[in-house]
């Protein structure tokens, strides 16, 4: 029920912050969503959409955190390997 998926904002219509709508591309399926709660969002941004509302903008730098973390673990592994 709390399913919310990331999609790319391809166009924005309306100026009133309360009724601003965006067309959001979810891998080819384009749907309308309200941008009322993400006033900072621009075309090209990724947003998390739930029941027709964008709830947050995906932070592209932070999105790398999971992978950086894995890299760190990897480096730790290498440190532990016996020196040749």
């Amino acid at each position: 029920m709390c399913l919310a998926i990331p999609g790319k904002v391809v166009s924005i219509s309306g100026d009133d912050p309360l009724t601003r709508m965006g067309r959001i591309d979810f891998s080819g399926v384009v749907k309308q969503a309200s941008l009322a709660y993400v006033p900072e969002v621009n075309i090209g941004d990724y947003v998390i959409v739930h029941v027709g509302f964008a709830l947050s903008k995906v932070d592209e730098d932070e999105a790398q955190k999971v992978f950086q973390y894995l890299k760190q673990i990897g480096e730790l592994d290498e440190l532990k390997e016996p020196a040749p």
Partner: peptide, 17 residues
């Protein structure tokens, strides 16, 4: 109108509008 905090902003907006 069911849901957690995730859905509440959507139902709130519907009521408000």
């Amino acid at each position: 109108g069911v849901g957690f905090e995730t859905t509440a902003p959507a139902t709130a907006m519907a009521i408000y509008q």
